[in-house]
């Protein structure tokens, strides 16, 4: 009995450092942010302000634009990317496929470049006289250059294209790893029963991979809700505030404009609340279909 107790104590010692660090750098600042969001004032002179910051948020057109933009990215980009990643992983999982290693590495490669670096590259590739417009013009797909960085609609499309380019291969690796654990005989049986590729994809692959799809959906959702590097380096949030994200607005409120930490903290709670809501929805979705 004594031995068991001492083993249990030893276990606490193993997890102690991690618990201290996560508490100190996640939970404690989170609590501070919550307190801060009820305070108001410029710089270090803060005083209690009740719900003023949250009231201001509801009437702040820039904040609402940032929330709308973030939603647009989320709702379009995450499903498109997950479907693409699933599609590529199924194609790559074909045992007879040649050059498999090349295709896999090529599609994964965008995941090794830093967000800032690829954002700067994309900004130049998609400039009005950039190579993407030249390419589209040469193929006669467009008759005049698209103003990727200046047009409110195309600027959002560009941000979505950029994130999808960067993360599809990364998510694909998770699905490929999971597909290797799927019993091949399931597909054999389905083929014998006359199921075509699409039916196999929707009725076998997706249900089998549901846990890992859920995991990637949640991590991608959390990532997109916090989107910062790309709009900051591709469009600077422009034109106007048409590509501004919530994280970027919080950064501007804290470090670009006259620092208003209390209000910035209140805006950051929008991301916290959205993260919790989306995570609950995604867990529910899994529960319902089971």
């Amino acid at each position: 009995m004594k031995l068991v107790r001492s083993k249990d104590l030893l276990g606490w010692f193993f997890i102690l450092i991690a618990v201290i660090f996560i508490t100190l750098f996640y939970f404690y600042p989170m609590l501070q942010a919550l307190i801060l969001s009820f305070q108001s004032g410029m710089g270090v002179n803060l005083e209690f302000a009740g719900l003023d910051n949250y009231r201001r948020l509801l009437n702040d057109p820039v904040a609402l634009t940032a929330i709308r933009n973030t939603f647009i990215y989320l709702i379009i980009q995450v499903p498109v990317m997950i479907l693409l990643a699933l599609f590529f992983s199924v194609l790559l999982n074909n045992p007879d496929l040649k050059f498999k290693g090349f295709f896999r590495t090529a599609i994964f490669l965008p995941a090794v470049i830093s967000l800032v670096a690829y954002s700067v590259i994309f900004k130049y590739l998609f400039s009005t006289d950039g190579i993407v417009n030249k390419f589209l013009l040469n193929l006669s797909l467009i008759s005049e250059p698209i103003e990727w960085l200046m047009d409110p609609f195309w600027a959002k499309v560009l941000i979505i294209i950029a994130i999808t380019w960067r993360w599809t291969g990364y998510n694909m690796i998770f699905y490929l790893a999971a597909l290797q654990n799927v019993d091949k005989s399931v597909y054999e049986a389905a083929r014998v029963d006359g199921a075509n590729s699409f039916q196999q994809f929707f009725y076998i692959t997706i249900p089998m991979l549901k846990p890992i799809i859920l995991f990637t959906a949640i991590t991608s959702t959390i990532g997109t809700l916090q989107l910062f590097d790309e709009p900051m380096n591709i469009t600077r949030g422009g034109p106007g505030n048409e590509t501004l994200t919530i994280s970027q607005y919080i950064y501007n409120l804290s470090f670009e404009y006259t620092p208003d930490f209390g209000y910035a903290a209140a805006v950051s709670f929008v991301i916290v609340i959205l993260t919790v809501i989306f995570s609950i929805i995604q867990f529910r979705l899994r529960g319902d279909k089971k």
Binding site: F27, Y28, A33, L36, S247, S268
Partner: peptide, 17 residues
């Protein structure tokens, strides 16, 4: 649960810390 905490919410308190 800390995985759900966005960095944007932490950066101001961390900066002050």
């Amino acid at each position: 649960l800390s995985m759900m905490i966005p960095f944007a919410a932490l950066m101001i308190p961390l900066f002050r810390f």
